[in-house]
């Protein structure tokens, strides 16, 4: 590991995103539009109660899902263009590569979630008991988790079609079981156990706790679990990233 190289990868990825105006705009605007859509859906029913219940979950979902997709496709592009092979022939540690990506997408997620949180709390009156800035922290942890999982699964994809298919395989089950649709303790026992080992459950728990109480201990604990999952995925990603390929 070398901080200089990790930093080089992170700034390079950010420059690439900045270059691609359409991607940059979509990364920042899309979550805001979707959260507005959710608010609008429940505007005439339930008097904001449903929005208060689902909104935080959605704030956890965006960074996770988007970063998962973006990362798995970009790393695959990096594999097929030959740049990854070239980098691995250079003095680049595998963790430098993975952490560089995680940091870059963490930064994007920070801006993305800051905007979405500001809009949700400031304009759409999302009711949050805990500190608002902590919502953004949870969102960043989710984004890093999404990137880390995306980096990991991209090792198993040989085409971009396959990479995109990993999203319904890895992400949608987590969305269904994370407690947003059915509270996790009301799920059938087997599914509840499954949801206990899925990282997105903890991200959603963190967001929901924040809206309900002012105490932050549980939130930090959940963020810790999410971060541990992200680190584990990065380690697995490093293990599956081979310098020598067949």
């Amino acid at each position: 590991m070398n901080p200089r190289i990790t930093f080089a990868v992170a700034t390079r990825v950010l420059t690439q995103i900045r270059r691609d105006h359409r991607t940059a705009a979509m990364l920042l605007v899309l979550p805001c539009l979707l959260i507005t859509l959710l608010w609008w859906m429940f505007k005439d029913t339930g008097g904001g109660v449903v929005f208060d219940r689902l909104g935080p979950g959605l704030l956890a979902l965006f960074p996770f899902t988007i970063m998962f997709l973006v990362t798995s496709v970009t790393t695959l592009r990096e594999r097929s263009s030959g740049t990854l092979e070239r980098l691995l022939a250079m003095p680049m540690g595998k963790l430098d590569f993975l952490l560089g990506y995680a940091i870059a997408f963490g930064v994007v997620a920070a801006v993305q979630s800051a905007l979405a949180v500001l809009l949700a709390v400031g304009v759409l009156d999302l009711d949050v008991q805990g500190p608002v800035w902590l919502l953004t922290v949870v969102a960043i942890a989710d984004a890093v988790l999404g990137s880390a999982l995306g980096l990991f699964v991209s090792a198993f994809a040989t085409t971009e079609f396959q990479a995109v298919q990993f999203m319904p395989a890895f992400v949608i089950p987590q969305i269904l079981l994370c407690g947003l649709f059915v509270a996790r303790d009301q799920l059938p026992t087997v599914l509840e156990k499954v949801s206990d080992v899925l990282p997105l459950s903890y991200a959603t728990d963190a967001m929901q706790t924040l809206t309900r109480t002012t105490s932050t201990g549980d939130v930090w604990q959940n963020v810790g679990v999410v971060a541990a999952f992200a680190l584990a995925a990065l380690a697995l990603g490093a293990a599956t990233l081979r310098r020598r390929t067949p």
Partner: peptide
């Protein structure tokens, strides 16, 4: 790894960066 320069058959630079930006990145790595 510090002593070998390698050009793969594919054009292994980043299409969305300028020539200088590409070189700057690889110079930092090296």
């Amino acid at each position: 790894r510090h002593r070998i320069g390698y050009v793969t058959q594919e054009v292994s630079v980043y299409d969305d960066l300028s020539v200088t930006e590409n070189l700057k990145f690889f110079a930092q790595v090296l």
